[in-house]
Every structure is written in structure tokens, then in C-alpha cells.
Amino acid sequence: MSDSINVDVCYARRDAQEIVHLRLPEGSTVQRAVEASGLLQKHPEIDLAKGNKLGIFAKLVKADTVLRDKDRVEIYRPLIADPKEVRRKRAEEGKVMKKGGGPAEEASG
């Protein structure tokens, strides 16, 4: 068994996605991978303490989660609006949600 693992650390901005390939010691955590990636220095908007959540293959994890070989660590941007709150407000306003996103008038016809 190898004493190191290969992992990717991903951060998607609105205009581009950045992926950093790393080789880390076995037993490394998500936090260590993020720090080793250099993305915290390159993107000062990333704030793990306040807004950005972390995941492995689209599943939320804590920073102290131990990584496995070939894991993809993802740094998520904070949501601008809570989707549940947006749907609730839309329902209160009486707007019809239509599959495909067309105008509400077309949904009733």
C-alpha cells in the first residue's frame, strides 16, 4: 500500500473552474488539501470559517474528514439567495412556476 494519495481540489467561480492536482500523505484531511492547493491565497474571497462549505464529490463534509486516494475536494461558493425562501415568496405572490421557465400566462392556456 502506498503512503501517499492523489487528490484534486476544485473551486468554481462564475467565470471559470480551477482544479489543483495534489499528492498528499495518507491520512490527510480536507483542510490540509485545501491549504496545500494554494487556492486560499489565490482567491481571498474564500472564507471557510464563514461562508464556503466543503464537499467530496458533491457531498458536504467537514474540514477534518480524512481523504482517500482519488477524492475530489470541492470548495463551494456561498448561496446568494436561499432557494426555499425564493420559492416561498413566489408562491405568496401567486406566480405560477412553469417547467421551462416561460411566462406564467402561457402556463394557464
Rank of each mutant, 00 (worst) to 15 (best):
A58C: 04
H43E: 14
K70S: 14
E18M: 07
G102P: 01
R87S: 00
V66G: 09
R72T: 01
G55S: 11
A58F: 03
L79P: 04
V66E: 15
I56G: 02
L24D: 02
N52Y: 02
R88E: 14
A58I: 05
D8V: 03
L54M: 10
V66Y: 08
G101E: 11
E93L: 09
A81H: 13
L79W: 04
N52F: 03
N52S: 06
S37N: 04
A33S: 14
P44C: 11
L54H: 07
I19Q: 12
I56M: 07
I80A: 15
D82E: 08
D8A: 09
A36Y: 01
G27W: 09
T65H: 12
A91S: 06
R23M: 08
K53H: 14
E105P: 00
P44V: 14
S28P: 00
I19A: 14
R14G: 11
E93A: 04
P44K: 13
E18T: 13
A12P: 13
D15T: 14
E106A: 12
E92H: 02
E26P: 00
G102D: 06
V20P: 01
L60R: 13
H43R: 15
L79R: 03
V86Q: 05
D3P: 00
F57L: 11
A36M: 01
P44R: 12
E93W: 02
G38Y: 05
L39S: 04
A63D: 09
L67K: 09
E26S: 02
D15K: 11
V86G: 05
R68T: 10
R23C: 05
R14Q: 10
A104S: 12
G94A: 13
A16I: 01
S28D: 05
E106P: 00
L54V: 10
A91Y: 00
F57K: 11
S2N: 10
A16P: 00
R14W: 06
D64M: 07
I56N: 05
D64P: 06
V34N: 02
V34T: 02
Q41D: 07
E26D: 05
A33T: 08
C10A: 12
V30C: 13
D82A: 08
V30W: 05
N6R: 15
S37H: 06
Q31S: 07
R90W: 04
R13I: 06
R13M: 10
P78T: 12
K84E: 12
G27N: 13
N52P: 00
D47A: 10
R14A: 15
K42F: 04
R68H: 15
V61Q: 07
K98H: 03
A107P: 09
D47V: 07
D69N: 15
G109Q: 15
C10D: 01
P83E: 11
I19D: 13
K84T: 09
V66Q: 13
K98A: 06
K62N: 15
G38W: 03
A16T: 08
D69E: 10
S37E: 05
D82T: 01
A12Q: 15
K98F: 03
K53E: 14
V96I: 11
F57T: 12
R14E: 09
I5R: 05
S4A: 06
R88M: 07
R14D: 06
K99R: 14
Q31L: 05
A63M: 09
E18D: 13
E85D: 08
Q41I: 01
I46D: 10
V30N: 08
V30T: 13
R13D: 07
E18R: 06
K42N: 04
H21Y: 06
M97T: 10
V9N: 07
